[in-house]
């Protein structure tokens, strides 16, 4: 084809089309020969998509409307609630068992474990290493089930952006 004709080519392709052509082609080919079905089998109720807009509008309207609070109906409970609150405050205020204060030994082990489980302590790896002796510890001291190769590959695949950064030597 003459250069002149190429310069006059009026057609264009989407950005990156040729860069991805190979990958897309391979994916399509593997899809055609795959045992994986091309449909999931999920369906929706009849007219679901036709009615979706009006259902959504109604929900947005409901959420943006200010809620009306019926103060009147609570009136009779205010006195009761105030009495209960006063009793609770009095009960809390009375020191039933005078003591100097709570000692560390007063805490149950389960309370301490719960605290560690439910609070983010923001401890760095170095800080943990300073207080926990690692000599003589095995990986399975921390894990209930042994890891298999597939789990490790899944973990790396999920959590490591660039596998090459790990500098794993292939010893196979």
């Amino acid at each position: 084809m003459k250069r002149k004709n190429l310069d006059k080519n009026p057609f264009s392709t989407p950005k990156g089309y040729f860069d991805n052509l190979e990958d897309n082609l391979m994916d399509k080919l593997s899809k055609e020969t795959s045992r994986i079905p091309e449909n999931t089998g999920f369906t929706v109720p009849p007219s679901y998509f036709d009615n979706f807009q009006s259902k959504l509008n109604a929900k947005i309207k409901k959420e943006t409307e200010p809620k009306v609070i019926q103060l009147k109906s609570y009136k009779k409970f205010i006195g009761i609630a105030a009495s209960i609150a006063a009793l609770v405050l009095m009960a809390i205020g009375i020191d039933w068992n005078p003591k100097d204060g709570i000692e560390f030994t007063d805490l149950a082990n389960s309370d301490i474990e719960n605290y560690f489980e439910n609070h983010d302590l923001n401890l760095s790896v170095d800080e943990i290493a300073e207080v926990i002796p690692v000599d003589g510890m095995e990986i399975y001291d921390f894990m209930d089930t042994p890891m298999n190769e597939e789990n490790i590959l899944d973990y790396l695949n999920e959590n490591v952006e660039d596998l090459e950064e790990l500098n794993i030597e292939n010893n196979e």
Binding site: I36, P37, N39, T40, F42
Partner: peptide, 13 residues
């Protein structure tokens, strides 16, 4: 009722 998949589609899920 809104899943009409066959055995293979169920197995896929």
């Amino acid at each position: 009722v809104y899943f009409e998949g066959d055995d293979i589609q169920l197995k896929l899920q």
